[in-house]
Design a binder for these strands. Structure first.
Lengths: 192, 192
DNA sequence: CTGCAGGATTGATAAATGTCAATCCTTTTT
DNA sequence: AAAAAGGATTGACATTTATCAATCCTGCAG
């Protein structure tokens, strides 16, 4: 179970994980299983853990006054999830995170993460690598949101994250793109 | 001149900068001045430097086939600029960065940055802090783009970055918000 | 099988936003 | 002081996208 995580870390770090590092990692992460629709985080709560997704699919979203959901992030196996602001600052989150598919996680608390960060070089390197990729991806998504039409954003998603289309229903894809489900349906028909 | 940078770094790091660290920093950063409208980076070029803005105002944007500009980022004194993807990967950038006001920078190359990162703890800490803040800010901007109306996005900008409104013309603010200048003009009239 | 629940699609219509062209300001240049 | 340039505003109109309501699917629970 931890092998998947250890493999992931070493693939995203430059230095290898020592046997001791591996033990520390195994000791710090706790396994958790979520059923479909189960919350990992609810608005108003503090995001206590950073979770590595072993299997399954989750979404992070807000709910506005009118009850409309807006998905800011999807996650599937091999991705991490948490509300970073809440996790790092200890403040209540404005987001919900829940499982769309039955999901298995490995979770670590902030304290243990900081500890690992300072004792296991591969963890530090992986963090930097993920920050880098995250920053680049965020920039692209912002650019897409402000400069493309609904159809272009959809076609872009098909190119960049086709797996999302397999794993999440269309109404969630629409929410992620910032358009209504009806508009997405029409775009898809249009695009043959 | 370097004092502004050193002060900035120490304010965003936990460990203090040693005298030796300060010398290394001074040796690594090079001063550069841009006139109004001068490019710091042009689409197709590689972003060779990470720049700290001492004074002035810049924007990072794309130009599409129709010649329309879309601003993804503003920068003023105390902010950093570069196209991160291009800077880190050495790939040609899709963005332009140019000076809106006359601007003074301190620039560092990737090689020197990596070197500083590995020898000056405060640089490493500052980088982590900036990544954290950048990730949180990016998340908020994505959320704003997919879930708010044009008017709400504008009012949100007024709250979060009022200085942008002072420093950049309205057509650039509109571009940053992903709306047309006419729409922004009408929103502002509307909002009394 | 049958019925239902969760989505997806479709049509009609409304609302938001973009586009184009004219005009109005201001500030800078000559 | 006049002219030019860069923005901002306004009106008319076009286009995109949202909203609402009615079906339509399709998989699965009884």
């Amino acid at each position: 179970m931890y092998d998947i995580l250890l493999k992931y870390i070493s693939e995203h770090a430059t230095s290898p994980i020592t046997e001791e590092g591996a033990s520390l990692i195994r000791a710090a992460f706790v396994y958790k299983k979520l059923r479909r629709k189960q919350y990992l985080l609810q608005e108003g709560d503090v995001s206590k853990y950073l979770s590595f997704i072993l299997k399954g699919a989750i979404r992070q979203y807000t709910v506005n006054e009118k009850g409309m959901e807006h998905i800011v992030r999807f996650g599937i196996e091999g991705w991490w999830t948490s509300d970073r602001e809440s996790f790092e600052m200890g403040t209540p989150s404005r987001y919900n995170i829940d499982a769309w598919e039955e999901t298995e996680l490995l979770q670590i608390s902030r304290e243990k993460y900081v500890e690992l960060f300072n004792t296991v070089p591969a963890i530090q390197e992986m963090t930097q690598e993920l920050d880098r990729r995250g920053a680049i991806a965020a920039q692209k998504r912002i650019h897409s949101a402000i400069s493309l039409t609904a159809e272009e954003r959809y076609l872009n998603l098909v190119q960049t994250h086709p797996m999302f289309l397999q794993r999440f229903p269309q109404n969630m894809i629409a929410s992620y793109l910032g358009i209504s489900p009806e508009t997405l349906s029409r775009i898809r028909k249009q695009s043959k």
